[in-house]
Nucleic acid binder design. Sequence first.
DNA 1: CATTCGTGAAGACGAAT
DNA 2: ATTCGATTTCACGAATG
Length: 333
Amino acid sequence: MSSVDTKTGSDAVETEIQVESRTETGGERESVCPECGARLTTDAGRAETTCTECGLVVTERHVDRGPEWRSFDTGERNTRSRVGAPTTKLLHDKGLSSHIGWENRDGKGSTLSPSQRRRMGRLRTWDERFRAKSHDDRNLKQALGEIQRMGSALGLPDEVRETASVIYRRAQAEDLLPGRTIEAISTAALYAAARQMDNPRSIDEVAAVSRIGEQEFKRAYRYLVRELELPVKPANPQQFIGRLASALDAEPATERQARALLTAAEGTGIFTGKSPVGLAAAALYAGSQLSGERLTQDQVSEVAEVSNVTIRNRYKELLEQYEKNRVDAAGRV
DNA sequence: CATTCGTGAAGACGAAT
DNA sequence: ATTCGATTTCACGAATG
């Protein structure tokens, strides 16, 4: 049993976090004083509950839910310490755990005997081990909570979130976390997972629900892919057509045309190096011209979060290739 | 007037040195 | 670590309907 405790440990954490994340914020604010039975008032700012009559301080556990602990901004990224995860200061143990220091002195400041010193050395070892373990656990909890939150905000299925947490754990196991924020790795893991499961979201979409900036997010993602050698294929623009079309309330004919345009351009090198979302947006615009719906470039660029310039540059290439294929097919018959 | 189109400057990125 | 080529975006003005 002892040899597998890392595995069972992390599984236990996973189920625990799911239960916790489903739990809504504590309901019962109505309570009475255990001493005098009078009403209690809660001071949210001080996180204190006091009796109106006798002044008894009950002090409930005001659980600090949600990852609002992150107080540094992206600009601080450069000055951040590279040692350890940035959670330590603010989150780790909430300052509740004791720590065995390195000084070989007792509580009064006098030095220890050699035997006591050895004993403390052994204790210190275990202290560090437990500390590291619980730190990783907290780290993971935090990350899984974030993945859960962002995943549901993006409407991603559970499998994607599970894949994301697997990726996160791999990153943790390979010591990829130091120097990066939990949010950054979580966001990157989720984005990578979505792509791996053929349910990609655009960088913009993911960045919109993440707590980190787009720059940092992309960095973390590339870092993860490189270090973990994640097998992520280039995203297919077709995968964005459906969601964009429904966001635009586009006609089915337009969507069909868009898909046809993309299919025609597949494998011609038009895709290489181009943003998949930009291609999808351009295809929808061009498709709407062909179908007669005539969406404007700005309409499409709005929902796709792609500039109208990009749409301009892409849709001409798409139409060109489409024409070429059409005459080829006609000539072959 | 709204939409589309073309352009140059600027920033980010990957690849190569 | 810097440099280069491609891409995207922004801001502007001109052309088009």
